[in-house]
Amino acid sequence: MAPTLAVWKFASCDGCQLTLLDCEDELLALAGRVEIAHFLEASGAVGEGPYDVSLVEGSITTPADLDRIRHVRAVSRTLITIGACATAGGVQALRNFADVREFASVVYARPEYIATLAESTPIAAHVPVDFELHGCPIDRRQLLEVLSAHLTGRRPDVPAHSVCFECKSRGNVCVMVAHGTPCLGPVTHAGCGAICPAYGRGCYGCFGPSPAWDGARPNTRALLPWLDMTEDETRRVLSTFNVAAFREAAVPEGPGDDAPA
């Protein structure tokens, strides 16, 4: 019997799960290998769990989410989170650095009807996650690689190095060094194929910080003076889809394996 696949949504824009439907050329091959049992963007027909593989999109922002993610974990053999919301809290994690009750009071006529948490948090903060696929949105080729690897029983080839690796392999001229364009590529997780620099734009950090040496974070502080941006611009460029992860990243690296004597 084919393994079953389920797709779940939490606080998110649906863009990452739609990446699955965007796999037009490979969709039939995928449907031949797995039974897509739960994917509301594609079909209202829901197959019964438990499921062999769950793709989870979105972050945890409400008390109801807290219960539902535990249920998803309980009915999933393998749980893979997809996208910046699920892996880092998403752009909605801007609330983590503000007062969400104040937002609610300004936006809603009856804020007391709004049940929301003070912070937007990644899935891995609540349940064990088997694999995290980064990006806003995730990359189609990487999603297929993760699913192909899972079906074959091998490790997915999803490197954690910087965007610069992909950029140089592609033969791009560095937009930062040659044009003076601010670029987060040196501290951003690869995966997009260095799309923005290939078209003369700086990297926006959609795939979150890289690398992470055994839990330490990239040296974002050392890059900032070279971006030629004001303090306000710098704060804003780090406050997008992976805001919570990049804010963490501004903490200096630990001593690692070779602490000074």
Binding site: S162, C164, C174, P186, W213
Partner: peptide, 10 residues
């Protein structure tokens, strides 16, 4: 100062 971005090696 090093970002460990790998540009020097590439």
């Amino acid at each position: 100062r090093c970002l460990t971005c790998g540009n020097c090696t590439m």
